[in-house]
Every structure is written in C-alpha cells, then in structure tokens.
Design a protein around this nucleic acid. Sequence first.
DNA 1: CTGATTATGTCCACTGAGCGGACATGTTGT
DNA 2: ACAACATGTCCGCTCAGTGGACATAATCAG
Lengths: 252, 252
Amino acid sequence: MQAPLGTSVIAKVGLVLRTLGTTDTAGATTSAVARDTGLPRPTTHRLLTDLADQGFVDRNADTGRWHLGPELYLLGTVAAARYDVTGHVRDVLADLAEQTGESAYFSVLRGRETVCLAECEGSFPLRSHVLYEGIRFPLGVASAGLALLAHLPGSEARDYIAATDLTTRWGRSHSRHALRSRVSATLERGYSVNPGLLVEGSWGLAAVVFDRAGRPRSALTLTGVRSRFTDERIPTLGRMLLDRAHLLSRHG
Amino acid sequence: MQAPLGTSVIAKVGLVLRTLGTTDTAGATTSAVARDTGLPRPTTHRLLTDLADQGFVDRNADTGRWHLGPELYLLGTVAAARYDVTGHVRDVLADLAEQTGESAYFSVLRGRETVCLAECEGSFPLRSHVLYEGIRFPLGVASAGLALLAHLPGSEARDYIAATDLTTRWGRSHSRHALRSRVSATLERGYSVNPGLLVEGSWGLAAVVFDRAGRPRSALTLTGVRSRFTDERIPTLGRMLLDRAHLLSRHG
DNA sequence: CTGATTATGTCCACTGAGCGGACATGTTGT
DNA sequence: ACAACATGTCCGCTCAGTGGACATAATCAG
C-alpha cells in the first residue's frame, strides 16, 4: 500500500514509528521499513535519519537495523502518567497464565487497531508466539480484535465492517460475511474464539475490558496450541477470561 | 529562540514533543507551546493538530490544553524493552527518600541534556518541587546536570563548557568560570551540590551512575529546602547518594 | 458589564523542504 | 565469482508547509 501524494511528513512519521513498534526485537532494515510502510526507500531513509537525529529511532551500528529510540522511551514514560493502564493488569495476566498454563496478553483499542501492551508466558511447553508486545492488528483480526469489534455499539461495528476490507491482508477467512458470523457468535458467548485464523494451530480466546462509560477499551487474551483448546475446555477458559476482564472493568 | 529557516518538520516535531514532555501535568496552550519552542503560532497549531491525528498528542476538550498522546505511551512501552533503566531504581529512590526524608530523583543523560525519569517524595513536610518527571535541563544545570558534566571525560567537558552559554537562560551563576569551579568541586567531593541556583532555598545533591563502559549515564538526586542541607549533613547525604549510585552502576 | 488583553482558528500567496527515480557502491548468499 | 539484495546519495522538480494578517472567541481586570 503506497502512501498517496499529499501524505504529510507527520503522517509518514506515524507510519514509520508504528511499523518499528510492531517489528520484532531484532529491528528492521531500511528496505523492510520502506516495504511495510509503502514509502519509497530514499524517503524512508531520510525520514529514519532525521528521526534518529531527534532520538526517536536508533540504528544498530553492526546490523544496520532500526529500532524505536530512547526519546520515545523517555516521552512514553512521561505519557504513562496519563495513559498507563497496565499497573494492575500484570497481576491478572500472571494469574491467568499460572492457572491455565497458556500465555496471557493484554491489548488496548487504538482507533481502529488493537495494540498488545503486556504479556505473560504460560508454563505449558508448547506455546504460540503470534502475539507479542507492540504488535498491532486491525479491529476484527485476532481474538482481541474480534472481541473489541463485537462489543462496539452496533452501528459502529456495522459501519466498520461495511467500510473495511480485511481479506487483502488477512485472507478470505476475514470476509465481511465471515466477520459478521464471528461477531454474532462472540456476542452470544461473551468472548471471542480465534480458531487458528492467523496461524494454523494457534488458537486464542479474548474477553473485553470496558471503560467507566461502558465502552470497550481493551481485551484479555489467552493463546496456545490447538490441541489445548478442546470443546470441553474452551468454556472454562472463556469464563476465566470474562471474570478477570470484569474485574479490570471495575478497577478502571 | 526562533527555529531558523530550514528547520525540518521532524526537528520541529522533536521540539514540540519535548516541550510537552517537560510541561507540567496541566498541559500547555497552543500559544505556550509556540512560545517555548520559538515556532510561529500558526505553525505550532498545525503541527499540534497533525500530531493529534497520529495520536502523538492529545487535547483536553475543556481546557484546550495539549498533552503527550496515547501513541507515545504505546510506543514508549515497546521502547522500554530496550531502554528501561528504572526497574531497580525505584527501590533505590524509595530507600533514599525514606532514610533521608528528602525527595529522591533519577535522571538520565540524553545528548547534552538530562531528563528526570523517576521520583520518590520525601516525608519531610517542607519539599522542593523544582524537579519532576519529564523535566529537562542542559548539562551543567541542576545537581544532576552538574554531576554528569563533571564526570564526562575531561576533553568532552571542557569542549562543552567552551561551546555553551548557559547564562542567557540560567543567569550569571551559570557563567563558564562558575561552572568550571563547580565541576572541580564536584570531582573533589565525588557528588555535586546545587546551593539554590535554580530556585533560591531549593538545594540539591547528585551522584552519577556509570554504564559498564565507565561512562556517566544517569544520576541520583536528593532535593529539599536549604535549612535541611547543613554543612554537617551534606557529607552524610553525599555518601548515601554515592553508595546507592555505585550499587546501580554495578547492576546496570 | 465593558473594554482590554490574550488566545485560537483560518486563509492563502509564496517558496524551499521534501520528494523519489536513477545511479553508484557495498554486502550477503550460493 | 556472480547474482541478488541493500544502502547512500544526487538533484531537478513540485507541492506541503509556511507565517503574517485577519476574524472571532475567551478571559481578565476594573
């Protein structure tokens, strides 16, 4: 997807930084950032060097790979005073991971995306690594994205589905029809189920945390390998997620 | 100070975000951000609204004041995996505050500035509020800035002092001559003393934390009212700071 | 309540910051 | 050694970004 003519520098900065925020810990090459943002490589190169001058990105001198920079950490620390929501969450994630053996995650709603902010690895030796801190998905994708979409006010969810084509990037399993079915099923159960739609064999369940106004703002997720998500076990895991999510809704 | 012709958009973004990062929790008006960054008000307005579109800043709808935005918190959380240095620090600050009654702070070196990242309030009812999370000072200013400057390699410190005029913003007490004297005194004692140079009556002491390569990277500070920083007490406080700083140097 | 002061939002003619295809050079993998 | 991939830089072009000016709104002092 190419940045259209007229995209402002600040919008491009947003693209680049979010891309680096989603990249795994090894960092990203200049070409990879260009590819993932849809920006021409010289443009990407120039943006990255200007951002590095300001401390917003850092470049590993040995590998040439780019990372989010120290200045973002510093500003993020200041911003945490207003937005930090993970204080109590980590205890909840640890508890979920311990009791279920699966890995537990916490993601927040940001516009029309979810961002994974915290995780706690489960004890079971077979684990899914589809989720990690920083990863972003559009609404409707992954169990958190599905749970959050389902709990948006009806008109907002319908408008979003009507206006969004997820199949290009996420495949035919994310058609509008399939999405509507999954939204209905999620509302019926109270929690979402992702039956390996992103990576085959990697299953996930998620329940929504609401803000004081009753709007969905974040989600708790459990993920693991398919064999651990039996028809018998799913309702148990779902209920645990709903219980913990409800606790967080009340604490927020 | 006006941003010169040719200042890139990204450099302006850096100015604006750092300014908001330094602003107190009530936030800043558009005009205040313009004044503090030296940018024309329409330019500042446009940068702020573009940054808000990306989630990098937020505007309080009631007061019209700007704050660092949720996206910085999110990216900062991801960046913390690489740059977070406060994990053990908060225990050390809590210990210092408890044992001395003064407020304890942790600041890191960022280029030629210090940034305060963590604090723990002391129990003594009279407290200084000159320092807070997010505040930045140039090297040589405040006890942390002085301690860090003093512990830079000799040539770097000398070059910095020769090239930097701190008197414009910080007054004649920050002349080059005065700075050199304070640097010498700091090296002799091992810790710096700020005898109310920023705000009369607000005193501070700081000791440097070194990285594995032996370079100064951060500082611990104790601040309080002048009456609590007697000739008898200063060496005791200084030694405690040096002890804790040494502990952190080894842990890092 | 009024006038002064301060703040904000927007306009738009102007221009230089930012652009990206092309080329040169470097690195990596087979 | 060669192909493939990656990076760094150039520079003519152009439109994104600029900021003084103006209108409007909000706040404050008397």
